[in-house]
Structure formats: structure tokens, C-alpha cells
Design a protein around this nucleic acid. Structure first.
Lengths: 179, 179
DNA sequence: GTCTATAGGATGATAGAC
DNA sequence: GTCTATCATCCTATAGAC
């Protein structure tokens, strides 16, 4: 298998992401990554000091993006719900490859040390949007945000524009308190 | 760690489920299961011929339950949406331990050979409820069903009755076509 | 930067005694 | 039904030559 371009580190990230998406993180060995790249495991270790470090580098863009989103959402408040939902959908879509693969494995989340942090932030956003953390309020936020995330995962390679409006509107109805 | 009761096969399933929920399937070794049970790996193999077979046995109740649900949903149709959503929530809650752990790992779904089958059935149910598989229609079904599933996973050990009504109502609003 | 070679350990699974 | 002992295989990671 020929190399893709001159930047080996970038090639490694691309191939690793492919394989993680196909087989999951734990199920993918450095041997597989090296083979698909046409180099050896030892060469991988020249570029990345460990498998975990490679994982962190792959996940960092999404983690950072999510951090910025939460900061924004905290300030925005419930009035901006339509905008916040759309931004969340777009964020998920930007990072859909990661979302479809690695970020579903609990072991991976624990390894990244982001599990509790992410859940905590998610709860903050939920509370900001529905105004309380009583179970009957929380579920509305869970269905709205979780549902949008599920859309991205299940719609696969469908272009975002074909479903974005419908998804945001549906999530918005889910979020609204019962009359 | 002392044995729980006289039925070793049942003990094995219980402990395996615990550990899979804590660490994921691939990340849990037979050595860990045996240790927590207070027996050896070899004893495990007396009761289960392989790790995969153990997994299948753990997952079968949910797979069967889901099969029955889909058969029912196919006959019911869109008019029964509130009932179908509630049944789905209850189904997810019955199998929440499985849902929180094993069934999120793509490698596991592939191993069970249920990945395509489940997605296929899910699509059937979606179509039955929203009447088409156009992206703008599908997302409504995804948010409703996916959202309910997310509720069960994220609400953890919260009692179902505390949030079931609110969740079903929210999902129902998400499912409704935009006016 | 990439290689060969290998250390050191865990894993799933099996053989055979009791 | 459970044990000890072991196999073959795979893994992450490192050492050192080129």
C-alpha cells in the first residue's frame, strides 16, 4: 500500500482513524495501522510515543471544540435554543468519524480522561436549556441533544444540508416543555 | 471473592455483565472474570466454550426482545405511536445494563452478527412511524427512538417511573411532522 | 526515518490430573 | 467441576543498525 503524501504523521492519523472507525480502538493493533501504511510498527513509534498518545491527538479537536461550545452555551441561555441546537448538530457533524467509532467505547473515554468531564459539561448544558435538573426536565434535553447526535451517526455520509433543518426543528419540539 | 450461589453458569453471566459494563467487552479478559468469581479460567471453559459464546448468551434476551418488538411495530403502524414509543422505552430499560456497555462497541455488534440486522429493523420501524425514508422524515424517527434510548443510558439507576411519561411525551413531539 | 530483531507480558484456549 | 500447567499467538514497546 503506497504512502499518501510526504507528511507521515498526518498519514498515520488518517489511517488510524479509518481503522478505528472500522474495528474500534481496542480492536485495532499498531501492526494493522503500520501494514496499511506500508511501514513497520517501529516507524510508528518514531512519530508517536504510544498508542494512547495517538488516540489523544485524534480526539483532541473534538474535545476542544466541545469545550468551546459548552462555554458558549453557558452564556447563551435557553432563549437561544434553536441556535444552540443547530451549533451542536454542526459540531457533531464536523467530528462524525470520531463519533461513529472511538467515542462510543467506554474504555476509550476513560483512557482519554474525558468521560466525567464530558458528562459534567453535558449536564450543565442540559440544565442551562431546560432550567432544572429534575428527571422530567432532563429527559427533554437528553432527547434533543442525544437525538441530534444520533442523527449524525445514523445518517452516515448523507449531506448535512439534506436533514439539518428537519433535525433541529424536531429537537426543538422535543425540548419544549409540555403545554 | 466468594461464589454467589450454586448455579455457576448464572454466576458467570452476572459477573461477566458487571465487568463488561465497567470496562467494555474487548477490554475485559477471562482472567478478570475468573478472578472475581474465585475460580480459574479453565473452569470458565467448562461452562462456556468461548468468550464469544458467553457474549452471545448475554445479548440474546435483548436481541430476541427487539425482534418481537419490531414484529409488533410493523403491524401496529403510525397511529399507535405513543404506545410504540413507550414500549421501546420499556424495552431499553429492561436491557439497560447491556445497552450501557456491550452494545455500544462496534466490534461487538459485528461479532454478534446483529449489526446490519438491527439497523435494518430500526429502519423498518422508523419508516413505519414516519411513513417514508426521506432524510427529513427519518431524522424525526431517529431523534424520537434514539433519544429514548439515550435517556435510559444517561439516567443510570434513576427509577423509570420518574421520567417515563416526560420522555415519551417529548419523543412524541419530536416525532410529529412540523406544522 | 525506517528497518530488523526482540523483550516482556497478556490473551484465548486446551490437556490431563483429581 | 475445578484444578495446574502449558501452548500458540498476539500485543505494546524498545534497542540498535543503516
Amino acid at each position: 500500500m503506497p504512502r499518501r503524501n510526504a507528511d507521515t504523521r498526518e498519514d498515520i492519523r488518517a489511517v488510524a482513524m479509518e481503522l478505528f472507525a472500522e474495528n474500534g480502538f481496542e480492536q485495532t493493533s499498531l501492526r494493522q495501522i503500520a501494514e496499511r501504511l506500508g511501514i513497520t510498527k517501529a516507524a510508528l513509534y518514531y512519530h508517536y510515543p504510544s498508542k494512547d498518545e495517538l488516540l489523544s491527538e485524534l480526539a483532541r479537536p473534538m474535545v476542544d471544540d466541545l469545550g468551546a461550545y459548552v462555554a458558549h452555551a453557558r452564556d447563551a441561555g435557553p432563549g437561544d435554543a434553536p441556535d444552540l441546537l443547530r451549533r451542536y448538530l454542526e459540531l457533531c457533524h464536523r467530528h462524525r468519524l470520531l463519533l461513529q467509532s472511538v467515542l462510543r467505547e467506554p474504555a476509550v473515554l476513560a483512557k482519554l480522561g474525558v468521560l466525567t468531564a464530558v458528562l459534567q459539561r453535558r449536564l450543565e448544558v442540559d440544565r442551562a436549556l431546560v432550567g432544572s435538573d429534575r428527571p422530567t426536565d432532563r429527559v427533554r434535553a437528553i432527547i434533543a441533544f442525544g437525538g441530534l447526535q444520533d442523527c449524525v451517526v445514523l445518517m452516515g455520509d448523507e449531506r448535512l444540508e439534506t436533514y439539518a433543518d428537519a433535525a433541529v426543528e424536531s429537537a426543538l419540539r422535543a425540548l419544549a416543555p409540555p403545554r
